[in-house]
Simulated scan of single mutants.
Amino acid sequence: MNIIIIGAGIGGLTAGIGLKKYGHQVTIYERVEKILPVGAAISVWSNGVKCLNYLGLTEQVKKLGGIMDHLAYIDGKTQQTMTQFSLDPLIHEVGQRPYPVSRAELQYMLMDEFGMQDIKLGIALTHIQETEDHIVVQFSDGTEAKADLLIGADGTHSLAREYVLGHKVERRYAGYVNWNGLVDIDENIAPADQWTTYVGEGKRVSLMPIANNRFYFFFDVPLPLGLENDRKQYKALLKEYFADWCEPVQLLIERIDPERTNRVEIHDIEPFYKWVKGRCVLLGDAAHSTTPDIGQGGCMAMEDSIYLIRSLAINTNSLQDALTRYEKVRSERANDLVLRARKRCDITHMKDPEITQAWYEELHQEDGQHIMKGIISNIIGNPLD
């Protein structure tokens, strides 16, 4: 088939790589002229790594990943360890180590694997129209292209989603702002082989190791929507929001480079189940934009890609049949995880102070089994189990 993918993000690229391996002619159109990933890094949990393994990228993702052997929650003010445990039982249970990775490095690796010659940058989708035998797409440069299948992997502001649903979907503000970036590993801030999260007051400061001796960090603060975003004020604001927090948090704030730090107001969208219209199918954030609170957004996009590739390969009744089967299986799983992430978001960010305080108290009694059970429940059910 001749396939057009809208969006050169993680989902679009993984779909493109896999579809090429099955002999399809694939072109990716991306509206931005230069790829500047939103977010410094991404948690590629074991289900996401398995998707990359399936595409033959085992060594490539391993090279990008940090070694994360332990997990810990720390009281942000007192620096008391609330819980700390090994992730080995989780890795053995699901059959694959997770890898926190630089989002940019992952995206560039996928672009190289797909082939830059088939990625059209700086060209935005403007219109979709179907004929009896094809789907025709028009672009911002005045050109148009015809394909057998259009994959809308165009993110949370998806135009393809608007075509499929027949209306625009409003995003829902999750109630907090996230600052994220990369710093060199310093064990005065956190152990080099551990996912460390400082918590308190509905706020989080988290660090994960990625390749080349770096931490991926993020700060979460519950705040109103639409506050001024002044990069020059990032350090001052973080010092204000975390004024009485422990020394490692203060050290991290000193180390960040505001010019290389991202600020994101966190949103999701209400789950929906219509992902297909004719020859157009949705994938990734276009289908299930979620908060990052369980670290499954990118993994879900990769799962979508693998399941779509396989559905097209093994269900030969018709294109519509293959797409419908994809829609049914993936919408149920992805929408469940959107709601899980929303629930975790509300607990973590003190939507109800009593519930969040109860969670903090539970962490002091946690031996790792409950947390790992929750992570494993997010991982299982993927298309490569």
Rank of each mutant, 00 (worst) to 15 (best):
residue 5 I to G: 04
residue 8 A to C: 06
residue 10 I to R: 14
residue 15 A to M: 07
residue 24 H to K: 09
residue 25 Q to L: 15
residue 27 T to I: 14
residue 31 R to K: 15
residue 32 V to G: 10
residue 33 E to Y: 15
residue 33 E to L: 09
residue 39 G to P: 08
residue 40 A to Q: 08
residue 46 S to Q: 03
residue 48 G to W: 13
residue 52 L to K: 10
residue 54 Y to D: 11
residue 58 T to Q: 14
residue 62 K to A: 15
residue 64 L to R: 10
residue 64 L to G: 08
residue 67 I to E: 15
residue 67 I to G: 13
residue 80 Q to N: 09
residue 82 M to H: 01
residue 88 D to P: 00
residue 90 L to V: 09
residue 94 V to G: 11
residue 94 V to I: 13
residue 103 R to W: 09
residue 104 A to E: 05
residue 107 Q to I: 11
residue 108 Y to C: 05
residue 108 Y to I: 04
residue 112 D to K: 09
residue 113 E to R: 08
residue 113 E to K: 06
residue 115 G to K: 07
residue 117 Q to R: 14
residue 117 Q to E: 14
residue 119 I to F: 05
residue 128 I to R: 09
residue 130 E to A: 01
residue 131 T to K: 11
residue 139 F to G: 08
residue 142 G to R: 08
residue 142 G to W: 07
residue 147 A to R: 07
residue 149 L to W: 02
residue 153 A to I: 03
residue 154 D to T: 07
residue 159 L to V: 07
residue 161 R to Y: 02
residue 162 E to V: 03
residue 165 L to A: 10
residue 167 H to R: 06
residue 169 V to S: 05
residue 169 V to Q: 04
residue 176 Y to M: 02
residue 181 G to D: 03
residue 190 A to M: 13
residue 191 P to Y: 09
residue 192 A to C: 14
residue 199 V to F: 02
residue 203 K to G: 10
residue 204 R to S: 10
residue 205 V to Q: 09
residue 208 M to L: 15
residue 210 I to K: 14
residue 214 R to H: 15
residue 216 Y to N: 14
residue 219 F to L: 08
residue 220 D to A: 07
residue 221 V to Q: 11
residue 222 P to D: 08
residue 222 P to V: 04
residue 223 L to T: 07
residue 226 G to V: 00
residue 228 E to L: 12
residue 230 D to W: 04
residue 232 K to T: 08
residue 235 K to A: 01
residue 236 A to C: 08
residue 237 L to H: 11
residue 240 E to M: 10
residue 242 F to A: 05
residue 251 L to Y: 02
residue 256 I to W: 06
residue 261 T to K: 11
residue 269 I to M: 11
residue 270 E to D: 11
residue 273 Y to T: 13
residue 277 K to F: 00
residue 288 H to K: 13
residue 290 T to N: 00
residue 291 T to K: 02
residue 297 G to W: 06
residue 297 G to C: 09
residue 299 C to K: 10
residue 301 A to L: 06
residue 305 S to A: 15
residue 306 I to T: 09
residue 307 Y to M: 09
residue 314 I to S: 09
residue 315 N to C: 00
residue 316 T to M: 01
residue 318 S to P: 03
residue 320 Q to E: 15
residue 327 E to I: 00
residue 331 S to R: 12
residue 331 S to W: 00
residue 333 R to Y: 00
residue 336 D to G: 13
residue 339 L to A: 00
residue 342 R to Y: 06
residue 343 K to E: 12
residue 345 C to T: 13
residue 347 I to A: 12
residue 347 I to E: 14
residue 350 M to A: 13
residue 356 T to K: 05
residue 361 E to S: 05
residue 361 E to N: 11
residue 363 L to G: 06
residue 365 Q to V: 04
residue 367 D to G: 09
residue 367 D to V: 10
residue 367 D to Q: 08
residue 368 G to C: 06
residue 369 Q to F: 00
residue 370 H to K: 14
